[in-house]
């Protein structure tokens, strides 16, 4: 973990409620699957976001406006300075599988972006699921890194259904998957197959392992989503019914 002050470089609207925020500063050490926890004026707790992309000098976040804090984030102008804890949690294991499959649902597509970029050479299949056509974004960007499959719940773009129903209906060639999305999606996915890893989210108190606010049950005992996670081996997580 590092506590850094980063400068807002870009804050762009991608869809009706989905934004891209680029931050500049000391951004070294952030791996695909790790997250940042940012302090916003007027909000008591920090807000965690999966790292969508990063290099030594920038971090890109993708965020959906869901409440007061994310609404406030849309007003951040270039040049604004924000207090950020970076390099949090453990990232994806990039050395698994010869033919990877990336599965993202909703805002869960964010951490898959840097991952897809890094797995580019393995030509991964990438399934991204959205609610509706108006939520679909970043398709050109993801297409650079692998074969892209789009699903929407209402069928208004791509294949109608969820990423999991798509995976069941289509025989994709893969030997290891990486998934991030809503709990129901990950639960359905891990019921189907456990040969992969999943990135979870939870309401955090701190985001760095101090408060036990995000402990989940796993087959090897209790683990904190923020500290031992957010990426877990798919067979490890015990989802509550």
């Amino acid at each position: 973990m590092k506590n850094v002050f980063l400068v807002v470089e870009q804050n762009i609207q991608l869809t009706h409620d989905f934004y891209k925020l680029v931050l500049r500063g000391d951004c070294a050490g952030n791996m695909a699957g790790m997250f940042v926890n940012i302090k916003l004026d007027g909000f008591s707790l920090r807000r965690p976001f999966g790292i969508a992309d990063s290099d030594d000098h920038t971090i890109t976040l993708l965020y959906k406006v869901v409440g007061g804090a994310t609404k406030y984030m849309t007003s951040l102008m270039a040049g604004a300075i924000i207090d950020v804890l970076t390099c949090l949690g453990n990232g994806f294991d990039l050395n698994q599988g010869r033919k990877p499959l990336l599965i993202g649902g909703g805002t869960g597509i964010a951490p898959l972006y840097k991952l897809a970029k890094q797995l580019n050479e393995k030509k991964p299949d990438i399934i991204l699921g959205f609610r509706s056509a108006r939520d679909v974004c970043l398709t050109d960007e993801f297409s650079q890194f692998g074969k892209l499959h789009i699903t929407t719940d209402d069928g208004s773009l791509g294949i109608k259904g969820t990423v999991v129903s798509y995976l069941i209906s289509k025989k994709l060639d893969y030997d290891y998957y990486y998934a991030c999305g809503p709990i129901v999606m990950l639960q359905a996915l891990t019921k189907l197959t456990q040969n992969g890893e999943v990135s979870l989210e939870a309401r955090f108190g701190c985001g760095f392992g101090a408060c036990m606010g995000c402990s989940i049950k796993t087959v090897t005992g209790y683990k904190r989503v923020c500290k031992e996670g957010p990426v877990f081996s798919a067979g490890e997580v015990i989802f509550s019914e």
């Binding site: 909000f43 008591s44 939870a202 309401r203 108190g205 036990m212 606010g213 995000c214 402990s215 509550s240």
Partner: peptide, 23 residues
């Protein structure tokens, strides 16, 4: 003790609520 099921945290104006349950 495992403590309580999630969610255990809720943000509040000027603070937070926790219900860890003594994990």
């Amino acid at each position: 003790r495992y403590g309580n099921p999630l969610p255990r945290i809720a943000e509040c104006p000027a603070g937070m609520i926790n219900a860890i349950g003594l994990q």
